[in-house]
């Protein structure tokens, strides 16, 4: 397309989604795939490219988003209600332990969101896929919000338990670094006149920032921290009662579905906004003639 656009998304130099036909044609339904996507040149990632096509993503997103939203809302309300009203108080911490049902799922989701951001950065740098850039732009602010919730709820938990809102503990500090990484991504991706350069710089930041994730995970083992060690690991039985574990897991699942629903909605909106911009530019050019 003449303006370097694929389904309303700016084309990046070297993108395998670069389509060189000009002028743009109205896409029949179903929308045709760019030729690069219809080949079997990249069989290992063919499915990724297939569903990363903006037109397909819009249709897929419209189908899954209501289900993600419903699952996220129901599971989050059930998990938080369970944790707040039904789960027992802790013998040591009393009712303050109920903050765990907000804090821990937010912490898990913050790390998972950053991993998703880094995966988008990887897809952007390796395959130069424009949808990966869009997804990264939309994941950034949501991830920053979730990390802020993790930090704020941790602070609210720390005040009655430790007597301090904040300590420069390795776990807390590494999560604060994660928050700044999200903010840095949000700022960097919007800091360039050329969106492709912004996306590239932000993708590199996202990939470098992945180093913070193992530091967060193992900080409570590597250093003597005020923050307690992990109560739940993949290799050992959970160090908490099942009556507390279940609402925690339900809430974590609800947060994850909710996060996915919000990101899908934001990416769909971003694609549509791009199409609106393209249509308006096209109209302005036609008016000039």
């Amino acid at each position: 397309m003449g303006e370097g656009l694929v389904e309303g998304i700016p084309r990046r130099r070297g993108s395998r989604h670069a389509v060189t036909t000009d002028p743009p044609k109205r896409a029949p339904s179903p929308e045709p795939m760019p030729p690069e996507l219809t080949t079997t040149a990249v069989p290992a990632t063919g499915w990724l490219h297939r569903y990363a096509h903006p037109g397909r993503f819009l249709r897929l997103g419209a189908t899954v988003q209501p289900w993600l939203s419903a699952a996220g809302l129901i599971l989050t309300l059930a998990g938080l209600g369970w944790g707040l009203f039904i789960a027992p108080a802790d013998w040591q911490q009393g009712d303050a332990v109920r903050i765990m049902y907000v804090h821990v799922p937010a912490a898990w989701l913050a790390s998972a969101a950053y991993l998703a951001l880094a995966a988008c950065g990887f897809a952007s740098l390796v395959w130069r896929h424009p949808l990966a850039d869009l997804a990264a732009v939309e994941i950034g602010p949501v991830g920053a919000g979730v990390t802020a919730l993790c930090l704020a709820s941790g602070s609210l938990w720390g005040r009655p338990m430790w007597g301090a809102w904040w300590v420069w503990d390795a776990r807390l500090t590494s999560v604060l670094v994660l928050f700044f990484l999200f903010l840095g991504h949000v700022v960097l991706v919007r800091s360039f006149d050329d969106p492709a350069r912004g996306a590239r710089s932000a993708a590199i930041l996202a990939l470098v920032g992945v180093l913070d994730l193992p530091i967060i995970k193992f900080s409570v083992q590597w250093w003597n921290t005020l923050h307690q060690p992990d109560s739940i690991t993949l290799t050992a039985a959970p160090a908490m009662s099942l009556s507390m574990l279940w609402p925690l897991l339900v809430t974590a699942l609800g947060f994850s579905f909710g996060f996915a629903a919000i990101v899908v909605a934001r990416v769909r909106a971003a694609i549509l906004e791009q199409r609106v911009r393209v249509a308006m530019q096209r109209r302005a050019r036609m008016a000039e003639r």
Binding site: S69, A96, V142, G258, A261, A265
Partner: peptide
């Protein structure tokens, strides 16, 4: 309980802000 309420309140506020914000943006687009 004040701390617990504040944590749950923050969670609800963030969820509403992000969720409703995304829905409105999508509708506008």
């Amino acid at each position: 309980w004040a701390y617990v309420d504040a944590a749950y309140g923050l969670c609800a506020a963030l969820g509403l802000w992000l969720g409703v914000g995304a829905a409105l943006r999508l509708r506008r687009a």
